[in-house]
Design a protein around this nucleic acid. Structure first.
Lengths: 100, 100
DNA sequence: ATTACCTTGACAATAATTGTCAAATGTAAA
DNA sequence: TTTACATTTGACAATTATTGTCAAGGTAAT
């Protein structure tokens, strides 16, 4: 599966846009976008929304990939990651509404 | 399934320990432990380790619950949470080693 | 060599998390 | 009821993590 960064870079290039074009729209420095595309930094949730629009990427696909990377980042040093994911999945399926 | 906070409080009370006994061992203020037990704050990863020891709780169980809550917290406002979890799961099962 | 684009790394700004403290609340015994 | 103790609450301070800027350095085409 393609990483968020790969998706972004591919689409940007396919559209013939330069880092400066896109980063201007995001209102951030070129450097950050470069890092995001190469996976050296994570985008913010907001930037993901904007990028989907700017680059005309299917939002669901992009968000799912982005979120899954965020999760994996949380678990990167954990042995029990898979088990935790499964528990989380069950909880989200059932319980859904449990906050006071 | 019991929350991390519930596990901690139940075990502490079963052992007849007071907040101040346990928080002293964690080297934090009573207030934080109180909040952790009631789910108002998250414990740090370190505190979870120490708490498992202090309260004699099965570490795996506690850590899995703790991590799954952390994940769910990340996804709390997301519609695509479940999908993201599934992608994350697949990635962790396969890819495992993909960092440069 | 000059220009255009991208990358890299040191560091600053900002935001989120974790903590302290003191006052409020609850609770039970005297 | 008042005292004593445990816990809760909320305002705020300290710390840590994230996000950003900037300037210097690469690369390739001209």
């Amino acid at each position: 599966m393609k990483t968020t960064g790969e998706i972004l870079r591919e689409k940007r290039e396919k559209k013939g846009l330069l880092l400066r074009h896109v980063s201007a729209q995001l209102d951030i420095d070129i450097a950050i976008l470069s890092k995001i595309e190469r996976g050296e930094r994570k985008a913010t949730r907001d930037q993901i929304n904007k990028l989907a629009e700017i680059l005309d990427i299917n939002k669901e696909t992009l968000v799912i990939q982005y979120l899954s990377e965020k999760i994996l980042y949380e678990l990167k040093d954990e042995d029990l990651g898979i088990q935790a994911l499964k528990v989380a999945e069950k909880t989200i399926k059932y319980g859904a509404t449990k906050n006071k």
